[in-house]
């Protein structure tokens, strides 16, 4: 656990953890509001967003791509709402129509434009490149206090840290509003809370978290982290506060364990190449969810007879 760990594993692991937490927090509310698949839709439309940003600016730079992706997410949410209302179509189908169409548009744009010279492809968008976010200037743990080395951390790390902090802050500040409007929208309305704004704000926060995480770890982790840790946490408790803590714990465990298993698991089994860390993190979160579904103390619906 010396210099090699700091250089090659510390930063990707941290990025994985921060991305997971940033997605799991809004995920808690999305699940309770039965909007879990908004995360799925957002992570699909991120692709056209970054492609359009690339075509407009001509460079693979972080800020325009983040803006493009966030813009695409907002466009998708508006389109889903429009199709739902104008066509009187049920939400699931409206979502399916929207995100597949936008994704297809993104793929087409990508194929049509000359992106062969830059690192921009569909597989990268899906799987991320967590393993490549190494900290080359680090020598050992003391590098954490070395300004020169710190200046060389991959730029994804501070970005996702800021977004993660922002999500935590928003969750704390709007805690009561979120809680009330999630559990009893009618009551929230009667109290005069801006219910529509809260819902939209939640979706936008989720989109920002998804976009920032997507940049580092790809869209699979984003969907998995929106849903699996909060869903598993839901099996563990009946209190919202405790559910959120559980979900954060699960997200961290999935990120660390997934990264370690992906990096070192094959070596233990006698292989000599690591497997996809993003995929492994998603898989571990799924295993956690499966265990929670099988053994969690509050897994059944309230009032449902305990089935054998």
């Amino acid at each position: 656990m010396g210099s090699e760990f700091v250089m090659f594993s510390l930063t990707p692991m941290l990025i994985g953890v921060l991305a997971s937490v940033a997605c799991a927090l809004p995920g808690n509310f999305l699940i309770l509001r039965r909007q879990a698949l908004i995360g799925d839709a957002i992570s699909h439309v991120v692709l056209p967003g970054i492609v359009v940003a690339f075509l407009l600016t001509g460079v693979v730079a972080a800020i325009p791509m983040l803006l493009g992706a966030a813009g695409a997410a907002v466009v998708a949410v508006v389109l889903i709402e429009a199709i739902k209302r104008l066509g009187r179509i049920e939400p699931g189908a409206a979502m399916g129509v929207t995100f597949t169409t936008l994704f297809a548009g993104g793929v087409l744009l990508l194929e049509q434009s000359d992106t062969s010279s830059v690192h921009l492809d569909v597989e990268h968008a899906l799987m991320g490149n967590l393993e490549s976010l190494v900290w080359l200037r680090a020598t050992d743990w003391s590098s954490l206090f070395d300004p020169w080395a710190l200046a060389g951390v991959p730029e994804e790390l501070p970005r996702i840290a800021v977004v993660c902090a922002g999500v935590i802050l928003l969750t704390l500040v709007f805690w009561r509003w979120l809680k009330i409007s999630t559990f009893d929208e009618g009551f929230a309305q009667a109290l005069g809370l801006p219910v529509g704004m809260i819902g939209m704000g939640l979706v936008i926060t989720a989109a920002v978290a998804a976009v920032a995480a997507f940049d580092a770890v790809g869209s699979i982790i984003v969907i998995a982290m929106f849903i699996c840790p909060p869903a598993a946490a839901r099996m563990m408790t009946n209190g919202l506060e405790r559910q959120v803590w559980w979900s954060v714990l699960f997200a961290v465990v999935a990120a660390v364990l997934g990264y370690v298993l992906a990096g070192y698991g094959p070596l233990w089994l006698g292989g000599d190449n690591a497997v996809s860390a993003a995929g492994m993190i998603a898989t571990v979160s799924g295993v956690i969810l499966a265990l929670a579904c099988a053994f969690g103390p509050h897994r059944a619906r309230v009032g449902a007879r305990a089935e054998a």
């Binding site: 879990a36 799925d40 699931g92 969907i223 998995a224 099996m235 969810l289 059944a300």
Partner: peptide
């Protein structure tokens, strides 16, 4: 078997 709604189950299965 669990209290999860179908959309959460769908999202969990597809991502995992």
């Amino acid at each position: 078997r669990t209290r999860l709604s179908e959309d959460a189950a769908i999202g969990a299965v597809l991502s995992v």
